[in-house]
Write a protein that binds this DNA or RNA. Structure first.
Lengths: 152, 152
DNA sequence: TCGTTTGTATAGCCAAGCTATGTATACTTG
DNA sequence: CAAGTATACATAGCTTGGCTATACAAACGA
């Protein structure tokens, strides 16, 4: 029962939020992809990171992150800082322009979704905020097992 | 955490859930994409639909849905039923095998995320379930404005 | 020094998204 | 009822984000 509830809620959470992501993509005029905002959001939350670690936390492969980082670098939304102690490595940090773009996207998203969420009550908003924190907490925790085999 | 500002919460909701989607993709061995589960989930929730309407509700373009439906049809996860009244149209419905696959994926997802969400309290689970309902309600409502200009 | 490990880059593939356009059926109207 | 318009789905061709496999360069260890 508890297990059924858990799997049901997690499954619905992922499905419903994927639909919300599609809605967000279609109502905003933004041509940027979710991957961009996800990446900058991670950098904002956990600070400058090596490319490989950023890939692990974002749960994408290292080559995928290499492509994303190059694209973001060309936009000037992140900075690649040479690691003084390891000539192979880069420290990736969010550029203020990237953070500003993230804020602008959030504003745009909220404006575009405003009609749909117009009747949101205060307690419903609080419920959504609480859910975000619940999930974020687990995502942070999952960082530790993110290396390879998960293996927990 | 941050102030319960609408744009902040919506932005975080989309970003965090995108990260959760990545986590789900990496912890499950599933080779299926989120688009597959999203589509079957929509069919399960709102029943047999014409391809175009399914595309609008899923917030993807009609050609994208054509490709998805063809792929799902080859797997036997949906059924294409000729519309008796309109030879151009098809009614798309979820096949029991598709619904079973959806359930299996949810179980797999829950099992894979179990370590990460192991300490979820009952009230936290309830919060997540409530959020799912809040978002689902708005998604259903947004169906009406899904046709063209997104209203105003 | 030389082999091994590690951090990032490159190559090449697939899937999901898009716009533009094609084709067949339905509808409308003179 | 013929002909033009509108609608429903399919196809073509592109872009991008994801992957694995592999290459390269720097660090490390014996």
């Amino acid at each position: 029962m508890q297990h059924d509830d858990l799997s049901s809620v997690l499954g619905e959470l992922v499905s419903v939020n994927h639909r919300l992501t599609r809605l967000a993509a279609s109502v905003t005029g933004s041509t940027e992809s979710p991957a961009v905002w996800r990446t900058i959001s991670v950098l904002r939350d956990v600070g400058p990171l090596r490319l490989g670690e950023l890939a692990r936390i974002s749960r994408v492969s290292q080559p995928t992150m290499t492509k994303l980082v190059h694209a973001l670098d060309e936009r000037g939304w992140i900075r690649r800082i040479a690691d003084a102690n390891d000539a192979r490595a880069w420290l990736i940090s969010a550029d203020p322009r990237g953070l500003a773009a993230l804020d602008a996207w959030r504003e745009e998203l909220a404006a575009a979704l405003a009609p749909t969420f117009a009747d949101l009550e205060d307690d419903e908003l609080a419920t959504l905020a609480a859910s975000v924190e619940i999930v974020r907490t687990r995502l942070e925790r999952a960082r530790d097992g993110a290396a390879a085999g998960v293996a927990a």
